[in-house]
Write a protein that binds this DNA or RNA. Structure first.
Length: 478
RNA sequence: CGGGAAGUAGCACAACUUGGCAGUGCGCUUGGUUUGGGACCAAGAGGUUGCAGGUUCAAAUCCUGUCUUCCCGACCA
């Protein structure tokens, strides 16, 4: 196999990152474009990744008492209008239902871009006493935001997500819950998806529409751009007041509830591709890979080989997500490459030569290392390897993030980094939005977050020279 | 919403300049031979050339309009 031949099929990651990304989405059969502009179809292989993320997250949510519920896709206009900042943030990309058949509706309905408003209206109905609190509800659903420019998984007009909405008796409890959710998200990214994160708080200008505080986990993709991977918001009483979500508190007085919301989306699939993928294609962390082990028989028409292959399948099936590639119209070389492009963490090669020695070859996707394994030790070895791959993928990602994180002391340094290396740039900042604006205009990089673990890098704001208040991560973003 | 490029079979493209039967490679189907890093032989299927209009005996090709996609900037998960 020549490299040239290979490159015809997937664009080289360093040549054109954007094309490389969409090539993987299409060729690994994760998703495809549809007749509906800006909306993708998620194919089974991609959807199964989402299901694995969803199952893990859902379990974590339930462990802390969150319950799933469902709210309408359509929201009447008057509800959306109730919180001023919220509607201002979303109105340009909201789609409306104006008529049914030939009949115009008296009040038009929006297709949810997010569900704060409709959920608040129900919370107001359901809440009367502090004894009812907290409400910890979540829904898994789709939302619609009419983006002008789209990219599969990263920015699709319709996307799947989970939106949690909680209300609490006290400010303290709500704030704590906001941070607790950020920890769960960070666990999902780091432990499940093998992607290291920077946790922190958004600056005033980068907050969610209608939120008092927005917390975020930021990740760094292979091309050096940042991706906001999950957010958790503290609303205070910003929604509970206009939506009249009030209760009688322990003192018998009327009080408005304290609210949070939080979400992760199918964008995480994009994060997996861009954090781990390489020139051979997708590279999936074992914990979410739809197929963890791919058995490739070297001769599909050799009865002895196929018998052993079937035995191994029986032994492993149930413990691992496993598949036999017994297609007889492809050569093994093709299958090796196909398996690598689909990002399957491990493949087992078994042929007549192996049977003579009672051995097989196991190849790991992360390092492409080939390991000779005794036939009766396969299960044991796979267990070890899958765990090691999961850890190793995290480590490689973490190293890359460290390499692509730098400190800038002034605008000149900042510009030079952004134009060469990209990545995260750590700076000291005065807290003034004017400095953020200036940098955005100059370099198109935005503040990512004020990290929880702030360091004192130096004293003065990198941009204006005034006394610095915070350390901030900056970066170009998706 | 500004700046640039492109739309021809599932994919990548050719034919367009100079109008004259819709082509090549990959992929796909069937049969056979193969199988340790993208196999080979043979026979097939697949098209309203993005869409609409115009010029012409004749349009993928020339003209006008329109839609879509991709890349670079402003907005967003």
């Amino acid at each position: 196999m020549s490299k040239d031949n290979y490159v015809e099929q997937i664009t080289n990651i360093d040549d054109d990152f954007a094309k490389w990304y969409t090539d993987i989405v299409i060729k690994a059969k994760l998703a495809d474009y549809t007749e509906t502009k800006g909306c993708i179809s998620i194919r089974p292989y991609g959807f199964e990744i989402w299901e694995n993320i969803k199952n893990y997250a859902d379990k974590k949510f339930k462990e802390i008492g969150i319950k799933n519920a469902y709210f309408p896709l359509l929201i009447p206009e008057n509800l959306l209008q109730k919180e001023k900042d919220h509607i201002e943030g979303f109105s340009p990309e909201v789609a409306w239902v104006n008529e049914i058949g030939d009949t115009k509706l008296d009040e038009r309905l929006c297709i949810r871009p997010t569900s704060e408003t409709i959920i608040c209206s129900m919370y107001s109905k359901w809440l009367s006493s502090y004894r009812d609190l907290p409400f910890l509800y979540n829904q898994w659903c789709n939302v619609l935001r009419w983006e002008k420019e789209t990219r599969p998984f990263l920015r699709s007009r319709e996307f799947l997500w989970q939106e949690g909405h909680t209300i609490h008796e006290t400010e303290k409890e709500a704030k704590e819950f906001t941070l607790k959710m950020l920890e769960i998200y960070s666990d999902i990214l780091e432990n499940l998806l093998a992607i290291p994160v920077v946790k922190g708080k958004k600056t005033e200008s980068e907050k969610f529409a209608g939120a008092k505080e927005t917390y975020t986990i930021e990740t760094l993709m292979k091309d050096g751009k940042a991706l906001q991977s999950a957010t958790s918001h503290y609303f205070g009483q910003n929604f509970s007041k206009p939506f009249n979500i009030k209760f009688q508190n322990r003192d018998g007085k009327e009080e408005y509830a304290y609210q949070t919301s939080f979400g992760i989306t199918t964008r995480l699939i994009g994060a997996i591709i861009m954090s781990h993928g390489d020139d051979r294609g997708l590279k999936l962390p074992p914990k979410i890979a739809p197929i963890q082990v791919n058995i490739i028989p070297i001769k599909t028409n050799d009865e002895k080989v196929m018998n052993v292959v079937n035995e191994i399948y029986k032994e492993l099936n149930g413990s691992y997500r496993i598949e036999i590639d017994d297609r007889d119209n492809y050569s093994v070389g093709y299958k090796f490459n196909d398996s690598e492009m689909r990002g399957i963490p491990l493949r087992i090669e078994i042929g007549p030569r192996d049977l003579e020695n009672n051995k097989c070859i196991i190849v790991r996707r992360d390092t492409l290392e080939k390991i000779e394994v005794e036939l009766d030790n396969i299960k044991n070895e796979i267990d070890i390897l899958l765990k090691d791959i999961q850890n190793n993928m995290y480590k490689m990602c973490e190293e890359r993030m460290k390499e692509k994180t730098s400190v800038a002391k002034n605008i000149e340094e900042f510009e030079s980094i952004i134009n060469n290396n990209q990545g995260f740039i750590k700076v000291m900042w005065c807290g003034d939005n004017a400095c953020e604006e200036k940098i955005k205009k100059l370099t198109s990089a935005k503040s990512r977050c004020i990290p929880f673990n702030e360091e004192k890098l130096y004293d003065k704001c990198f941009c204006c020279g005034k006394e610095a208040k915070h350390m901030v991560y900056f970066g170009r973003q998706y």
